[in-house]
Simulated assay, not measured.
Amino acid sequence: MSDQSIRIKDLPAEERPRERLVKKGPESLSNSELLAIILRTGTAKENVVTLCNRIFTEYSIKQLSQASLTKLMEIHGVGTAKAAQISAIFELARRLEGFCDEPRRKITSSADVYSILYPQVRELKKERLTTLHLDTKNNVIREEVVSIGTLNSNIVHPREIFKSALLESAASVILTHNHPSGDPSPSREDIAVTRKLVDGGKLLGIDVLDHVIIGDGRYVSLKDEGYIS
């Protein structure tokens, strides 16, 4: 029997990932060993640790977190169940990064907006426009995805931005969207759409406080750049 096909339960206890985690803590395990604990089983020809070692020779942890369910299932030895387990664990990690246990999150700067939205959009392949609805003290009372796709004035209409803001009695809104290219520099269309929405908000009595464009580990605030007065 090859080392690859040796079952995990046949290994000495000190070499089994789960037992090592219990004894030494999760920080002592490699990425492959942590993934092995999640997947639990390998294939007829590979034990789970060998399978996970192979996965991490083909993918970095970032690439694995971004892979679609279909792409994961293309990995030899990874079927629907294992692909779903991998996808679920990375989604939990993303949600944890953006989690806040305060009753309401207060926005004091564009950096606060970035910290809330970046974990949600950093791996998206398409632009996503999200609005934050704020009360009079700049606490977030609602977060809403308005549109998915390239931002332009033909698909981003003021009524879509302000409809739920009016229902929530929001005092103001903050616009955010991501640039999948990683470069958060605003385009002419970004600036034009923002000005259009600022004007629309004034008519409705709802201030557009900022439009934060998120890139790869960085962002641009149109308020900070002087496009919103």
Rank of each mutant, 00 (worst) to 15 (best):
T136G: 10
L132H: 03
R122L: 04
T108N: 15
E143K: 09
Q66I: 07
P158T: 03
A84M: 04
T70F: 05
M73Y: 05
Q63P: 14
A67M: 07
S109H: 11
R54V: 08
N53T: 10
A81F: 00
S68Q: 06
N53G: 09
I86T: 02
E102K: 14
A81E: 00
L72I: 03
F90D: 08
I141E: 00
I86P: 00
K71H: 10
Y118L: 03
V121M: 02
K82F: 00
I148R: 13
Q85S: 10
Q85E: 13
L151D: 01
V156E: 00
L124G: 08
T150E: 14
Q63F: 15
Y118E: 05
E143L: 08
K82M: 03
K137D: 13
Q85T: 09
E97I: 08
K82L: 01
I86Y: 00
L129N: 01
K82E: 01
L132K: 01
Q85M: 11
F90T: 06
L72F: 02
A111H: 14
Q63E: 11
T136C: 12
E91R: 10
N154S: 14
G77F: 05
V145K: 11
V113K: 03
N53S: 09
H157N: 15
K125N: 13
I116L: 12
R122D: 07
E74I: 05
K125Q: 14
E58P: 10
R142Q: 07
R94N: 09
R104S: 12
A83I: 00
I116S: 02
S109C: 12
G98I: 03
R122S: 04
I141V: 08
T108Y: 14
P158H: 05
D101T: 12
E143F: 06
V146M: 09
S68T: 07
V140R: 01
K62H: 15
S110I: 06
R142G: 04
K137C: 07
I107P: 05
G79D: 00
L117V: 05
E74G: 02
A88R: 11
S115G: 15
D135C: 11
G98N: 06
Q63Y: 14
R54I: 06
N138P: 04
S65T: 07
L92G: 05
E123W: 06
R105S: 12
V140E: 02
G149S: 12
S147Q: 13
E127G: 07
S147K: 08
L64G: 01
K71Q: 03
R128Q: 12
A67P: 00
L64H: 00
I75N: 01
R104D: 11
G77Q: 06
L69P: 03
K106L: 15
I107K: 06
L129F: 06
L151I: 06
E127R: 06
K62F: 15
N53Q: 12
A83Y: 00
R142V: 02
S110W: 03
Q85F: 04
Q85N: 12
A83F: 00
K126Q: 15
K137V: 08
V113N: 03
G98Q: 08
I107D: 04
I107F: 09
T57G: 11
L72E: 00
G149W: 06
V113P: 03
N152D: 15
A83C: 01
D135M: 07
V78E: 00
E123P: 02
A93I: 08
E123Q: 13
